[in-house]
Structure formats: structure tokens, C-alpha cells
Nucleic acid binder design. Sequence first.
DNA 1: ACAAAGGTCGCTCAAATGAGCGAACCGAGC
DNA 2: GCTCGGTTCGCTCATTTGAGCGACCTTTGT
Lengths: 330, 330
Amino acid sequence: MSERRQEVQETAPNGPAELVRLAAIARRFYLEGRSKVEIAEEFGLSRFKVARDLDAARSYGIVHIDIRLPERLDAERSELLRERFGLRRAIVVDTLDDHLDTRRALGSVAARLLSEIVRPDEILGLAWSRGLQAMGADMVELPRCTVVQLNGVLSEHTEAGGSVETVRRVATLAGGQAYPIYAPLILPDAATAATLRADPGIAAAFAHFDRLTTAVVAIGGWDERNSTVFQALTPEDRERYTAMGVCGEMSAQLFDIDGNQVHSDLDERVISVSADQLRRVPEVVAVAGAGDESKARAVGAVLRSGLVSTLVTDDAVARVLLDDGSPDQD
Amino acid sequence: MSERRQEVQETAPNGPAELVRLAAIARRFYLEGRSKVEIAEEFGLSRFKVARDLDAARSYGIVHIDIRLPERLDAERSELLRERFGLRRAIVVDTLDDHLDTRRALGSVAARLLSEIVRPDEILGLAWSRGLQAMGADMVELPRCTVVQLNGVLSEHTEAGGSVETVRRVATLAGGQAYPIYAPLILPDAATAATLRADPGIAAAFAHFDRLTTAVVAIGGWDERNSTVFQALTPEDRERYTAMGVCGEMSAQLFDIDGNQVHSDLDERVISVSADQLRRVPEVVAVAGAGDESKARAVGAVLRSGLVSTLVTDDAVARVLLDDGSPDQD
DNA sequence: ACAAAGGTCGCTCAAATGAGCGAACCGAGC
DNA sequence: GCTCGGTTCGCTCATTTGAGCGACCTTTGT
């Protein structure tokens, strides 16, 4: 993985006087920020000797450096995920013990991520999931920008404020225009969907899909437990799509395990941004978490599509994606 | 104390993407050992930006560096003691909870210290205390050198192998000549002491006192609990010397709180190396621990005499000497 | 709109540092 | 004594890095 890494414990330990001396030198250099030349003068050594002593101190484990993020961010897995899937950014949120709050934690991080990366006058697209809903709730500031809803709503999940409310809330916060979509996500047939897309309000939202600068979407799994879309389908549809190899979903766009989009009649039956449109968005932020191993596989599948530029997920998903069984390491 | 120290948490925390980015850069630099130029190329930044990011990562506390010694050595207090008392070396042993083993721990460290600093063909002088006895027991290797006993024995403490046995053991280990002293440390009058000093065996030991290259001595307090010498005196003697300001003792040489030697009739009544002779020894290692606050004051007193070049002590003593009440800090 | 103020950026130049190398040193074996 | 690995040391030279500075970009107050 890394060509040069730090050795753990290389050679024989010295006597106590030497250890204390090395510690003093290491303190000077690493904690007090003195130069090796200064240290050499103070201790009456050559600067080369000081350099060697510092190497020794590190190889003996006297100097301990670790990179650890505040909050619950896993720096190492974030980096590994980013590299593994060729992402622009990956943010792994450590949920520690409280798996109940995973969604909330992801939402909170995603909210601050948006505050961070969205520039003024962007056109921001928001899909919907419970995680994104939490994100909307936790958003506290956003530069002035237009907020567009990316898909219709799922009637099953409109209790606690659905997609429309989130879009409105964020737009208000951003002090910009809101383009909500008052329509269901999935319709029984293509004709109904086409009719709805012609509705002025909905068309206004769709009109922005080709000019989006940042899209925030959720990744859904493909089973009863991990997918809101799956749950919204009839048993026959479920079987049919599953037979086509579907194992993950993002904004009602279906993907097989290799990240290939699975086209079907569903494409025409949903009110949603399309995968092709997403591909043209400069920044696609996917939020995915709070699921089991199957959900993690769905995330991997969608990531392989190359549509996602930034991923926000939890450590459980990251662990599975990285084939990393250990609960903690370094 | 230190002009440049690391700030703890300087400016405002950034968003999660920035934090993860900083962590990735910090990992590259601090853990993978890449140069800032390399990192800059990889991330498409200028090397100056990388340097600033690394500074930011440190000030945000993302990079955590600590200097920590293996075993039970307190690097920070060792250093502080060394500076405070102008010593060549100071070694503070962390006794943690088990105060019972303090003496043994000090002895063990002192033993390894001697193995480390004694060069072949040195003339090594050993005083006596329970700590030095533990040192003798823990000594495992020593270059070939002559071992000289520095003072007579205290009859009260000859149970578990007195000074003589320690000297013999160390000399055997070093494969060198042993010069033990078969005499009491304190005698009733100067005449008896003088007679004893004329004894051929004792004189042979004394003859080496001016050619010692390393002396290992113990520091004793000045009350019933902390001093073997004090205990060996008559109540009248105790009072008399106490009235003279004595508050610490090293090899039966008495010192007041400022490190001035307190001369008295005791000087002539002891069979021991003198303070003046010790002053001419290039390396004087003092071992002192396992006492209360009064013992710590004694150690400070003796250190102020300037006779000691290397101190081995425990964290309790170090804490008192440094006016450092906190049980742990950084 | 404009200017002042504060922040960030990348440059120059000098200092700090690393890689590699031969000299000196050490201990072991003859 | 002597030579033979093996180790440590400090050197040269090229690279890396830091300090300070002016250019530029935002933001804020007028």
C-alpha cells in the first residue's frame, strides 16, 4: 500500500540514559520545533548525529505520531475509500456504538459538507432519503444558491417532512429559489409519468437538471430492509428487476454489481433525474449509510458506476467495502 | 520555558471535507515520509500550500505527536530535573502505583545505566544503600573494571547482603579487581577511624578514591524515616547535626538545604569517601528514591552541592523537586 | 461604488535537511 | 600483532524547507 512506512520497533533498546537523551532530543525537534542544527549545538553533536538519533527515536517507538480527526471522522478509511473507488472525496463517519444515530450523524456531516463545498450561485440538486432529510434538518448555513428537487416523493415516507420540505428549508436557508417536485417518485406507467413531467412546476425543476452544479443523492440497497425504492415496488416488479441483476439504486436509477446501469421500464415510470444527467453534474455527493452488508454492496455497485464524486458513509459500510473486518486497527 | 511550543487549538475548525483532506496530507507527510513537494504534486497544490495545510493540521490537533519512553521512564521530568539542577543526566523512573517496588525499580534502572555508561578499565566506586543493593542484584553485565567500595557498612543493614557483597558481586561480573571495605561506616571517635583507615585492606580501597572515574552513591534524608545514617547516630549526635542545618546526606557527607557541606566531627568518624574526593570524580551517579517529601528535600539539597552529575530517582521525588503537584500532565 | 483591512497565494533566497560515501573505529578471529 | 566485517561518524552536494514579501482576492464599512 505505502512504500515507505514507519517501522514499529527496529533494533535493540538502549540503556536508560540513552533513552532519556533520545526523548529529550525528540521533544526538542517534534514538540518545540527546533531545528536539528540548534539541537546539535545544544547537545554538542553534529547535525547528522541528531538526525540519526531522531530516526532511532522513531524506530524505537519513542516518538509516536498519529493522525486523528476530531469528531467522528475516520481519516484512514476515508482515504482508502477515496483511492479505491477513484472518488474526489470520501468521508467516513465513525458511528462507534450508537448505530441508532447513524443516519443523524451522516446527515449532520453531509450538511456541513455542503456548507463547505457549495459556492455562491450554484444550482444545488437534492434527492431524498431519510439521511438527506436529517441533512436538511442539520443544515445551518449555505451560500445563496438555487435548490432543485431531484425526484418525486415516496408516499410511504412523507411523515416527518418529505423531500419537498427539505428542499424548501434548504432554499430558504440559502436565500435562493426553490424548485420542489409535487409528484410521486414511482408511477404505474410511463404515460402518467410523462404527463406529470409536463406539469409546469415539475417541468421547471426538470429544466434545471442539465445545469446542476452539485447534486446530493442517496444510495439505496436492493432488498426489503435497505431500499425505499424496493419497498415501493410490487412483488412482480421486484422479482423482475432483481432478475436483471439489480443490486443497488440511486435516485431510482438501478445498477448491477459492476456499476452498470440497468435500464428498464422503470426509467420511464419515475419522476427523477436520470443517471445520464447526474453524470454531467460536476459534483455528485452520495450519502449512504445505516444499512447492513447488502447495503454496503449496493454502495460499492453504485460507486463503480463512476457517477459519484463524493461519498459520505459510515464506518460499517466502509469496512465492508474495504474488506476490512477488524473493528479497529493501526 | 520553551520559546516555541505547539499551539493546542488555534483557529476555527473547517468542514468535514477539509478535515479529511488535511488528515490525508498529514498522513502522507508524517507517517509515509513523503516530501511536501511530492504531496503537492499528488494533490495539485503548491508546496507552500502543503506546508500551510500541515501547520493547520497541527494547530487543529489532527496531528498528534507525543514523546513517550518505553518502560517506566518519565522523559519530561527527567529533562526538567536535568536542566533545573544542571545535571549531566537525570533519569526519573515512573513507579506508577506500586510504591513497594520503587527501590527495586530504581535499582534496576541504575544497573542498566551503569552497564551503559561505564567504559572498560574504569575505576568504579560503589557506596551503599538498599537501592544500590537492588542495583547490584539486577546488574547483568559490565565491562571489565575495578570496583571499589566507597564506605564502611552499617551494621543495622547487613541482613540481605551488605555493601561488601554488592561490591564483590559487581566486580565478579565486571571481571575486575574488588576493593571491599570491612569496617563500620560510623565509629565512636576519630582515633578509631584513623586506625581502621590504616588497615591494609581498607587503605587499598581508599587509595583508589582519588582515581575513581565513576562513583555510585545514595542520597539519604535526615530523619528517622529517610536516612540510614541518621538512624545510626545517637540521639545527641542527631540533635547536634540537625542544629547545624543538616537536611541531607550522601555517603555520610552532610549537607544543608543550600547544598553546602556541613563539616563536623562526623567527617573524621566515618569510613567513607569524602565530598572533596567525590567532587574530583568525573561521573557521580546518585540514586535516591523511596522516600517522602523530606527525602525529596534532601535530594534537592545534595544536588545543589554540585557533586552529582547523574541522578536516578523516582517520579514522586521528581514531582516535589519540580514543585509539580499534578499527578500527570502534558 | 470605493477604499481600507484582512486573508491567501506563490515567489525569492537562504537555511535546513537527506542521500550517499569514504574515513575511522571496534571487536573477533587468527 | 594483524586483517576482516561491521558499525559509526561527519563530510559534500543536491534537494527540501522556512521566512518574509508583494500580488491578489474578499469582505466590510463608508
